[in-house]
Design a protein around this nucleic acid. Structure first.
Length: 558
RNA sequence: UGGGGCGUGGUGCAACGGCAGCACACCGGACUUUGAAUUCGUUGAUCCUGGUUCGAAUCCAGGCGCCCCGGCCA
């Protein structure tokens, strides 16, 4: 309670909080909330909100409530509640106490509504949805009062109670706040507080047949919980006057709503509606499909929560609409993985390379560091070299362009950690495709260095053909490749380009990989041993988390 | 003359009346048994027009542009 030494705010949200702390508005308390509607899985955009709410509260010694905004029984489901809890925990956050539910406040909300009726600030309207829409006016024209607006308090009380009792049909009546039909802010033109819905709620069952709208439920829920700062996205700015109006008229604890710009990521589709459709149409393999920007998908792909948090820190927070470059997301993931991943060799598109002067049955075993030489760990594994090895198809070119440093006829390159080889010949199939490359190796160069000190410009990863470990490797496109795709385009993208399943050749040590481990396949990218599909010591499935920089990018540009 | 919000390099975020900075991207050099990483460096911005001021991204006025709002969704 004593230390109020300036934390130096790092964004506008913290500035607002510090103003409150300075004025004593909330006694220096900071209690935020993360209020998802349980109608879908959380995605990377929600991570920004989660991070903002939790980290801001933490910074000021406060806590954060997890509250499910479950006011619409038609769209919500218990399945989503569990996934949301799991995802928030995965990011490393602990909410304050038990998860809370707007539906827990239905009784209190009902009492508040009666209170508003009693002070003449709410009324039951018998108008149809169409009539209400028409009387609401337009963006430029004021609305008109409903013919039911001036009912007596007694009649409103009676009607509202009977609404709750189930005496009226769906759509026949609503409870509205009596604000101002001529307000330039549409949200203030007698907003609807309750609608009749004979729907079974996933938590309250059939207890209610009237359900509060977002505007009516949200602020009061914040208030009931003693929230101090209600941080939400920009589109609710127009709702803040209403948020304040309810609280002022009820004369109850009044949190401050603060709005920030939601996250947009280039090439990434974050529409809940479209994600829902991809999943329900089974275009993707569930909510945790690694191609999806859902937190479940990101996790399944192999991204660590540390990277997600780092990303949220890097993007900052402001009120300007913005689009974050997907490159920052990828950079952050590589940055996180680089120091912790073992480096191994894996050939994704094998091309056989025969070392003609290598003895037929000889095996040379190398102890190779899992990490770079400057790393702390010097753990090693055995890598066998045999007469026949696989190299990457793209690491050989018969007619190399300029600045291509890898293998081509007559050229000498290094087989990483092993030796230098020089290409002497190629074998082609009937169509003229290279199917085998022949080389000679320099026995003096075992270990990778030539005693005469000559340098080679290319270093290739490779795997012994005889001892290769076969595993399924799945390459995923970097989320989505088209800006703002339509549902149709999305399905095309997902079906055609976004996932490649490859039978890859990995070095033998990879047979001991454990589900959940992450590796860097040198010159290829970072891979995650899919913990759900893989069985320890048996079949292993590798998800590509993220590629290394495309080594072809520079060449393509020339 | 509907209301609300926002305009800083290609992208995102800082600077809150005092030398426009950081990150990503880009480009170039060094290093390298990963064309990765690392490292050094270059290019590049205050929406416009006025005003106040010794001094304006910042304050004021007027424009312009973009986003959100007419669910009984959240």
């Amino acid at each position: 309670m004593s230390e109020n030494d300036s934390h130096s705010p790092t964004n506008f949200v913290e500035e607002i909080i510090e103003e409150h702390n300075a004025s004593g508005r909330f006694d220096g308390q900071v209690l935020t909330r993360f209020p998802p509607e349980p109608n879908g899985y959380l995605h990377i955009g929600h991570a920004k909100s989660i991070y903002l709410n939790f980290s801001t509260a933490q910074k000021y010694g406060g806590t954060t409530n997890l509250r499910f905004d479950d006011t619409n029984p038609l769209k919500e489901d218990i399945e989503y509640i569990n996934s949301i809890k799991e995802d928030v925990h995965w990011l490393g956050f602990e909410w304050n106490g038990e998860p809370l539910f707007a539906s827990d406040y239905f009784d209190q909300l009902y009492e508040y509504a009666i209170e508003l009726i009693r002070i003449g600030k709410a009324y039951v309207d018998d108008s149809s949805a169409e009539e209400i829409r028409e009387l609401r006016g337009s963006l430029t024209e004021p609305g008109k009062n409903s013919p039911y607006r001036d009912r007596s308090i007694e009649e409103n009380l009676d009607l509202f109670e009977r609404m709750r009792a189930g005496e009226f049909e769906e759509g026949s009546k609503v409870l509205r706040a009596k604000v101002d039909m001529s307000s330039p802010n549409l949200n203030m033109r007698d907003p609807i507080m309750y609608r009749i819905l004979f729907a079974t709620h996933h938590r309250t069952g059939d207890k209610w047949c009237i359900y509060p709208t977002y505007d009516w439920a949200h602020g009061q829920s914040d208030s009931i919980e003693g929230i101090t700062h209600s941080i939400c996205t920009l589109e609710f700015e127009d709702h803040r006057p209403l948020y304040d109006w309810y609280l002022d008229n009820l004369e109850i604890h009044h949190p401050q709503q603060i709005e920030f710009a939601r996250l947009n990521l280039s090439y990434t589709m974050m529409s809940k509606r479209k994600l829902n459709k991809l999943v329900s149409d089974k275009v993707v393999d569930g909510w945790d499909d690694p191609r999806l920007p859902t937190l479940a998908g990101i996790r399944r792909r192999g991204v660590r929560p540390e990277a997600v948090i780092d990303f949220c820190e890097r993007i900052g927070v402001a009120k300007a609409n913005s689009v974050i470059d997907i490159a920052l997301w990828e950079h952050t993931i590589r940055q996180d993985l680089d120091p912790i991943c073992k480096r191994v060799m894996g050939v994704l598109n094998p091309l056989k390379l025969v070392i003609d002067n290598f003895p037929e049955d000889e095996v040379i075993e190398f102890d190779v560091d899992y990490f770079r030489h400057d790393a702390e760990s010097h753990e090693t594994r055995k890598v066998p070299l045999t007469k026949e090895v696989y190299i990457e198809q793209e690491d050989f070119m018969e007619d190399p362009p300029k600045k291509y440093f890898r293998l081509s006829p007559g050229r000498e390159v290094r087989l990483m950690s092993a030796c230098l080889v020089t290409c002497t010949d190629v074998v082609k199939d009937a169509d003229g495709n290279v199917v085998e490359v022949h080389c000679t190796y320099d026995p003096e160069s075992i270990g990778g260095q030539a005693p005469d000190g000559r340098r080679v410009k290319g270093t290739l990863h490779w795997v012994s053909a005889k001892y290769a470990y076969d595993a399924e490797v799945r390459l995923y496109d970097n989320l989505f490749t088209v800006e703002n795709p339509s549902v149709g385009e999305l399905e095309d993208i997902v079906n055609t380009d976004s996932k490649q399943v490859i039978d890859a050749k990995l070095e033998p040590a990879m047979a001991q990989a454990k589900p959940g481990e992450r590796f860097q396949f040198m010159r290829k990218g970072y891979f995650f041993v899919d913990p759900i599909d893989s069985t320890e010591g048996d079949d292993l499935y590798f998800n590509q988390i993220i590629s290394l920089r495309d080594s072809w990018a520079k060449i393509k540009k020339q």
